[in-house]
């Protein structure tokens, strides 16, 4: 900001600040509104009488005698057994991230070190796979999964998510490995390591920043997925996101839309914490492919 070249005229500065305020409200307000509203009764969150009821909780006070109520959370987590879905999500995400990173680091390392043409074609095919909407593959899975009795189980969803994750993981880790100097592993090999030993003892210790960033995005892909988990998992094994979708179908008619609101807040909370701790890695991951290339 020191240089005069970057000082802006006052009206422009004011316009930018105004715009920034509008954007911050647009980005944050829906979440604040929903978190606040999730502790109210339905009559307040969807208020026919007065929108301000959602803020002051008029009906919540009338119905429960208190300003806040945990009814929505109780209904979702205990009555509708949302905890089961949360547990399934935990299993699916943890397994997907671990397996796809194991496969991905091995593959991406080889792709970044190979000088042959087929490595390039491998990446192009991965890019094409990345471009295809995952839901187009589901009708290819279903008959086989039904025939072999694989449909509905968590491991099936995990391995499908791992495969769908691979193209992205390979591309991202490939660009990270390209930044690790080749001399490192090559000098290890001159000293008598095999390729795998060089990878294991020289590359693995220095690859963690890239791997953690990629892990965050693999996690997001598994956590946010709806298309695959909704169609491949049976009702008992549902993860959180399809479970919320099923709330919309069944409980909304019973007047329990607040269950869904509470569940939505519960799903958002871990993401919130994740951005708080890993903001730097998320930003660097989003820009990895773009700015360097």
């Amino acid at each position: 900001m020191a240089s005069k070249a970057f000082r802006k005229p006052l009206p422009l500065q004011a316009l930018l600040i105004f715009f920034l305020v509008v954007w911050v409200v647009m980005a944050a307000f829906p979440f604040l509104w929903t978190v606040w509203g999730s502790f109210k009764v339905e009559g307040d969150f969807f208020s026919k009488a007065d929108w301000a009821n959602a803020i002051f909780g008029t009906r919540t006070r009338a119905e429960t005698g208190d300003l806040f109520t945990g009814q929505g959370y109780y209904g979702a987590w205990v009555q509708e057994e949302f905890w089961r879905a949360a547990l399934n999500t935990l299993i699916v995400c943890a397994a997907t991230v671990m397996i796809s990173l194991t496969f991905g680091t091995l593959g991406a390392y080889a792709l970044s070190r190979s000088t042959y043409r087929y490595a390039f074609w491998f990446l192009i095919i991965a890019l094409i796979f990345r471009a295809m909407p995952p839901i187009t593959l589901v009708s290819g899975y279903l008959p086989v999964f039904f025939d072999w009795n694989l449909w509905g189980h968590l491991p099936t969803a995990i391995i499908v998510l791992v495969a769908i994750n691979q193209p992205f993981t390979l591309w991202m880790l490939h660009s990270f490995f390209n930044n690790i100097p080749k001399d490192l592993d090559e000098s290890a090999m001159v000293d008598g390591c095999t390729r795998f030993q060089a990878f294991r003892h020289v590359i693995v210790p220095v690859m963690w920043p890239g791997v953690i960033t990629t892990a965050l995005f693999s996690f997001l892909l598994a956590y946010n997925d709806f298309a695959i988990t909704a169609l491949v998992l049976s009702k008992e094994n549902q993860t959180m996101v399809p479970k919320i979708a099923s709330f919309l179908g069944t409980t909304q008619t019973k007047g329990n839309v607040m269950f869904a609101v509470a569940a939505v807040v519960s799903v958002t909370a871990p993401l919130f914490v994740m951005i708080m701790f890993f903001q730097r890695q998320i930003v660097s991951g989003l820009t990895a492919g773009a700015v360097k290339g």
């Binding site: 496969f103 593959g107 899975y141 086989v144 391995i159 495969a163």
Partner: peptide
């Protein structure tokens, strides 16, 4: 090195396209 990743993509992306 690329074998595990390739098998995953072959089985769950490439074959499903053929199946579709």
């Amino acid at each position: 090195f690329v074998l595990p990743s390739s098998i995953a993509m072959l089985l769950f992306i490439f074959f499903p396209i053929l199946s579709v």
